[in-house]
Amino acid sequence: MTTTFEQTGPRTPVVESIRVDKLSPRSRLAGRARAIIATVLALISLIPVFWIIRTAFIPLNEVTAIPPKIIFTPSLEGLVGLLTDDRILSESALAAKRNDPNLSFVDRVMLNAGREVVGSSPYASQLVNSVVIAGASTILSVFFGLLSAYAFSRFNIPGAGDLLFFILSTRMLPPVVVTIPIFLMYRSLGLHDTHIGLILLYTVFNLSFSVWLLKGFIDEIPREYEEAALVDGYTRLQAFRKIVLPQALTGIAATTVFCLIFAWNEYAFALMLTSQNARTAPPAIPSILGSGGIEWNTIASGVLIFLIPVVIVTFALRKYLLRGVTFGAIRK
């Protein structure tokens, strides 16, 4: 029995509202001009990044040339110098070394700069520390944040408002203020210069942010979905896994990116609470001082390599980031 009557197809209309005055030729020209200016400004603000790239590949003897050289023969000295320990050779030793037929590529590069390779630098392992610590703390803070956010969103927790504010307030604290107490605490607990120590700290700091952000995302998922599942016979955990999680993926991705960026770049605590074992890259890079003057190209290489992982992750997840930043701006 048909009594139906409808337009079939998706319900949301295709909306592409273009207001009348935005189509005039003058308005279009203005739009283009604005785009050009914005691009120029963006390029200008990227100059420091271009500079770092330049400096990373410039031979040491041309680094501080005045006027600054933009056109040069690139060399891998900075990069190699970053990853190796070296010392300056005298002229005679240099000449002698040059004639050695068993020189590796790395040796040769350093020879051009007047140095001899004596081993590898700690940078590689410091980078690995960064990856491990930032990665682990991000995973932990997102995981626990998700569970807390779900609880705050769905359950009737007494004093929820106060608790949430309390959680957020940890983010209002300038980290430097608590470095000394934490340093003392860690030392007596034996957590100083351990991976676990830093992971724990970063997790705690990131938790506040991740709870807040994830709660916002979960609030947006209508609870009718889980309630339908509950009524159908699923437990709450199953409902969470099958229904909430797939829909919260965008939010989880956005939160992950933010937590990762914070943990990756963190400097103050890393400096105070690590020395040999668990040192991460941020405090390590400025301490790369050469043996014969400041090796700017090495430092720049360090920065460049440090930048790359986070740039890749952010680029890969860029559309989730946008959602995370603009999210919550419109409250219902």
Binding site: P222, E224, E227, A228, L230, P246
Partner: peptide, 18 residues
């Protein structure tokens, strides 16, 4: 809810979008 064996039809958001 599961044990009561009732079916609930909501006003909206009752179909899993994924």
């Amino acid at each position: 809810p599961a044990d009561r064996d009732v079916a609930f039809v909501f006003q909206q958001y009752s179909l899993y979008p994924t």
